[in-house]
Amino acid sequence: MEVRFVLNGTEVKVDVKPTAILTDILRDKLGVTSVKKGCETGDCGACAVLLDGELVNSCLVLAPTVAGKSVTTVEGLIVNGEIDIIQKRLAEYHGTQCGYCTPGMVMAIKALLNKNPKPSEAEIRRAISGNLCRCTGYQKIVEAVQSITA
């Protein structure tokens, strides 16, 4: 079946099976490989994207349900060649190690700051609680976010 949605500001059209997950559509059909497959059960957050502005695990979103909606990935945060402050500070504050959780982590932080521009440390930690970083770099990630909101 055909599904149309807006990906990072541009309308796209894809032919999907009803049971295809958004992660696979983004990666396999639209070339958005920043969206990672870590578990496919909604536990790790490596596939997290914004769906109509809300953070979701794209592995739990069936592709046809995205029809008419808007999807944002880390690629969509780059405007006129300028990377987002979250992307900049995570890099500067060593908030990345192996990098596999990073795109999902960036989107979780984006979702947080969109709604709450001055989060407390506890609110930052709660906002990234669904994004597992096995390199255990959480402290640096929190510091990077605090550097933005301070």
């Binding site: 957050g45 809300e54 953070l55 739990l60 609680s129 669904g130």
Partner: peptide, 8 residues
């Protein structure tokens, strides 16, 4: 769950 789970 987590923020993404609560959103869905």
């Amino acid at each position: 769950g987590t923020p993404a789970i609560r959103n869905a």
